[in-house]
Design a protein around this nucleic acid. Structure first.
Lengths: 180, 180
DNA sequence: ATTAAACTATCTACTGATAGGCAGTATTGG
DNA sequence: CCAATACTGCCTATCAGTAGATAGTTTAAT
């Protein structure tokens, strides 16, 4: 892993714990073993770092989900896959969704970061809409609404689980969500 | 309004925009027209201020909801009332739920603040559980689950609406939620 | 006279950012 | 083939601004 990648990884952990203001160049530098001035070599400004962080997070997230059609044809339920990925983020990383937390504080984010956060949600909503269209006789309007409701429930349940320090909240919230 | 109340109000706005790290004693002081040192007179430490902020927010929120039984007997649907209060917070204040945002960054909050955030959710879940028990033949287990799902959906939808800078996301998410 | 609510002044620590230097590696032109 | 050049990735040193917090003082109302 290059120093740049290490910096992004360290930043991701910090942001997922306490938001955009919860990391500093000095802190990241110390964690990966370089000086804070060198972080500016890789990312000219903090906004640049934040934007790239959100961008890569989104890309990795969508990539990990895979293709809706492929999943469906292989006999998997895309919606269950989507839910599982959120569940994994909470249970494995024990941290909030990066874009969920940043989304909540969108008002104070530099524009480039805010743009990437928006992209996370449009990408995920498009994916979910497609997933719902592979189900039952559904029109586009209904699929869109189901997509919004599903991702809202997941982000909200994640948030409350972390606030409550109790993952059973999340498990309870998603019970029976995938199977109609 | 006393200076102390003004300070709490100013802090609430700041926190609901960008989280716990988005306000400073100097900023608050400037906004209400006193010196930063004087803020320490009202709130010895930042954690004290944060905890009282969350406490009052929770109390006001529950107070504004009213009593479930009373609402039900007056012919109102408590669940619809609950949803309306969230909707109002988003549409009127144009800001995230204080405890939603703070809940997401619970890992970095001073314990006294975290405790108050937890209380917000237990209070609201209890209220909602009661509300669901006034509906149809439902057992306690089902009512608890419905409560978690409802508040998760609301918090999540709020978050995504702010991230997307588009309130129609929220309206779409809550469509048909109150009426079974 | 006591007390509440503000003040002045100051401390240490941390913030993002910049200027300029210095090795090591690639690239390129004669 | 080799010297000149440029690039990469880091460094030291430093800046102005802001953070939370404290000690001690003044003001005004009870």
């Amino acid at each position: 892993m290059t120093k740049k990648e290490e910096l992004l990884q360290a930043a991701q952990n910090k942001v997922r714990e306490g938001g955009y203001n919860n990391f500093s160049f000095r802190e990241l530098a110390k964690e990966v073993g370089i000086k804070s001035a060198s972080v500016h070599y890789h990312f000219p400004t903090k906004a640049d770092l934040g934007a790239e962080l959100a961008k890569q997070y989104t890309n990795n997230f969508i990539l990990a989900l895979g293709d809706v059609k492929t999943l469906h044809n292989a006999g998997h339920n895309p919606i269950a896959v989507f839910i599982t990925q959120f569940k994994h983020a909470l249970h494995h990383d024990k941290k909030m969704c990066l874009c969920g937390l940043l989304g909540a504080e969108a008002d104070i984010l530099p524009q480039p970061v805010r743009t990437e956060i928006k992209r996370f949600f449009t990408k995920n909503l498009d994916w979910l809409e497609q997933a719902y269209l592979y189900r039952e006789p559904t029109n586009k309007r209904q699929a869109k609404q189901s997509a919004i409701q599903t991702i809202s429930l997941l982000e909200g349940a994640m948030m409350i689980s972390i606030a409550s320090q109790d993952n059973s909240v999340f498990d309870n919230a998603i019970a029976g969500l995938a199977d109609h």
